[in-house]
């Protein structure tokens, strides 16, 4: 067994300058630095490589690295802008920025649309909506008769698909959310409002304690 004399690098690959990330997001520099501590914790829970793997994301969300869920998969994939199977620091901060209470509502609505556009066709299709309802019921151990599920999906679709072409485009989605603002309630995390106060334990003196 050898011992490591060399000092670990302060930042892992994929690290981005907090000043630049703060300029692009509702976070200030110290909040980005605080979130880096959370990111380090999440990204080292299974594989310590400075990137959040899907299993690490599942572990953080469900306390179980093997618990898969359609919606967690979609959140992960929507964070993973580079589509390389991992969430890097910059991706993490930019995506979380959308969940900030001060982020523009428009960006929350668009993010939700991307989440629900399962096959990334630019539309939410009826089959996708039904698949999500079934996934939610399965996740919640709820059983509904097939025709009840069809009724829920049909009713929602007839409300949202105002053009009546069998799919919900982003304009219809925006209009639908404006009529039903509670649909994007889960796109705001109040915790992010002042993360350095809410999570003082994340604020470590990483820049000065070395």
């Amino acid at each position: 067994m050898g011992c490591f004399l060399s000092k670990r690098p302060k930042h892992t690959a994929g690290y981005e300058d907090p000043t630049l990330l703060a300029a692009e997001t509702p976070f200030n520099v110290s909040e980005v630095e605080a979130l880096y501590e959370l990111f380090k914790k999440l990204s080292s829970s299974i594989v310590d490589d400075g990137r959040i793997h899907k299993e690490e994301f599942q572990l953080a969300l469900f306390r179980n690295k093997n618990k898969r869920n359609l919606f967690a998969d979609r959140v992960f994939d929507t964070f993973d802008v580079k589509r390389n199977g991992v969430i890097e620091f910059g991706e993490f901060i930019r995506a979380l920025g959308i969940f900030h209470p001060n982020a523009p509502v428009e960006s929350k609505i668009e993010f939700a649309f991307r989440l629900y556009d399962l096959r990334q066709t630019g539309f939410i299709e009826r089959e996708e909506l039904k698949e999500m309802v079934l996934a939610l019921l399965h996740e919640s151990d709820l059983v509904l008769l097939e025709d009840v599920v069809e009724t829920i999906v049909d009713k929602t679709f007839s409300d949202a698909d105002t053009k009546g072409d069998g799919k919900i485009d982003v304009e219809e989605w925006k209009e639908f959310v404006s009529r039903n603002p509670s649909l994007i309630k889960n796109m705001t995390l109040p915790y992010l409002k002042d993360i350095t106060l809410a999570f003082p334990s994340f604020v470590v003196t990483s820049e000065v304690d070395d």
């Binding site: 969300l61 939610l136 009713k155």
Partner: peptide, 26 residues
């Protein structure tokens, strides 16, 4: 609320997989 009267997206938004708040819990 009877599920049949619910908006499907409202139902979906209750998914645990969409609740990122858990990331911030110790």
């Amino acid at each position: 609320v009877a599920p049949v009267a619910m908006n499907a997206f409202e139902l979906i938004s209750t998914s645990q997989g969409l609740n990122l708040g858990t990331l911030f819990e110790k």
